[in-house]
Simulated scan of single mutants.
Amino acid sequence: MYKFRILHPNAITKLRMQPVMHGMIGILFLFNLIGVYKMEHPNWLMALLFIALGTASLAFPFMMRKMRKMSETNSVLRLLQVFTLFSGSLFFLSHMQPIIGGTLLLAGLGVAYTGYAEYRIMQPAYARIEDSGISLPTVFGEKHYRWNEMNNVILRNDLLTLDFRTNKVLQLEVLDEYSPAQTADINAYFQSRLT
């Protein structure tokens, strides 16, 4: 059995979408600020909350690359965004605006899911190679592929390449270092399982 420490298969796509998601949530907070401000009796505490989180959400993508603990900071900001969306939902529902309140509730659930997915993707991920097949991480668990689903499996240049019989190719970046002799042994094991 082999266990490879890999970059999570969905990490690249999710990390590219992070700045966009933070920007969209920031804009949503600023639109909610307009809704709070235009009420007959504005709630200034809620308005300040929307201003603070809207500005922080819009500024975060520009500061992401400078942070040392980007994953932890992102998780904290997601929690604050979810809290603010749920608080805004309760605020607008209590002021008899069910469409805005319901929309904020759905947005809060969506951001909570996104935050959980980002948290899981940032955790160390492992691909397990066993006699029964290959197990790869997903957001909520693992996906197991049998050897009879594969045309070829090869480890070369820190890339684990899975060639499926369905003409699908998956390349995973391996974060562990292997010597040429170890790589040859691993590839020989792969070939023995494929035949």
Results as ranks from 00 to 15, higher is better:
residue 73 T to P: 00
residue 102 G to W: 10
residue 134 I to A: 00
residue 60 F to M: 01
residue 64 M to R: 03
residue 143 K to L: 08
residue 60 F to G: 01
residue 3 K to Q: 04
residue 59 A to W: 06
residue 184 A to G: 15
residue 161 T to I: 11
residue 22 H to I: 09
residue 48 L to W: 12
residue 173 E to Y: 06
residue 142 E to C: 08
residue 20 V to K: 08
residue 36 V to I: 10
residue 93 L to A: 10
residue 159 L to R: 11
residue 87 S to G: 08
residue 24 M to I: 11
residue 60 F to Q: 03
residue 127 A to L: 11
residue 127 A to R: 10
residue 165 R to C: 09
residue 154 I to G: 00
residue 171 Q to R: 15
residue 95 H to W: 09
residue 181 A to Q: 14
residue 180 P to S: 12
residue 90 L to I: 03
residue 186 I to W: 03
residue 140 F to S: 07
residue 44 W to G: 04
residue 123 Q to T: 14
residue 184 A to Y: 08
residue 93 L to H: 04
residue 115 G to S: 06
residue 118 E to T: 10
residue 88 G to K: 00
residue 63 M to R: 07
residue 110 G to F: 15
residue 28 L to K: 12
residue 104 L to S: 04
residue 191 Q to H: 09
residue 126 Y to S: 03
residue 173 E to C: 13
residue 115 G to Y: 02
residue 60 F to C: 01
residue 78 R to H: 06
residue 143 K to C: 06
residue 145 Y to W: 15
residue 187 N to D: 08
residue 4 F to T: 10
residue 90 L to R: 04
residue 95 H to V: 07
residue 76 V to T: 08
residue 71 S to M: 08
residue 117 A to V: 12
residue 62 F to G: 05
residue 26 G to Q: 13
residue 113 Y to Q: 11
residue 6 I to M: 04
residue 191 Q to D: 14
residue 177 E to K: 15
residue 183 T to F: 07
residue 17 M to C: 12
residue 40 E to H: 13
residue 165 R to S: 01
residue 63 M to V: 08
residue 176 D to K: 15
residue 73 T to Q: 04
residue 169 V to M: 06
residue 116 Y to V: 07
residue 137 P to A: 00
residue 61 P to M: 01
residue 130 E to W: 07
residue 138 T to H: 05
residue 58 L to H: 06
residue 100 I to Y: 13
residue 189 Y to M: 12
residue 185 D to Q: 14
residue 194 L to R: 13
residue 156 R to P: 06
residue 26 G to W: 02
residue 17 M to V: 07
residue 160 L to Q: 00
residue 154 I to S: 08
residue 117 A to N: 14
residue 24 M to G: 05
residue 121 I to H: 04
residue 8 H to V: 14
residue 187 N to R: 03
residue 81 Q to C: 00
residue 38 K to D: 01
residue 106 L to T: 12
residue 123 Q to M: 14
residue 30 L to Q: 11
residue 161 T to R: 07
residue 74 N to F: 02
residue 12 I to Y: 11
residue 71 S to G: 03
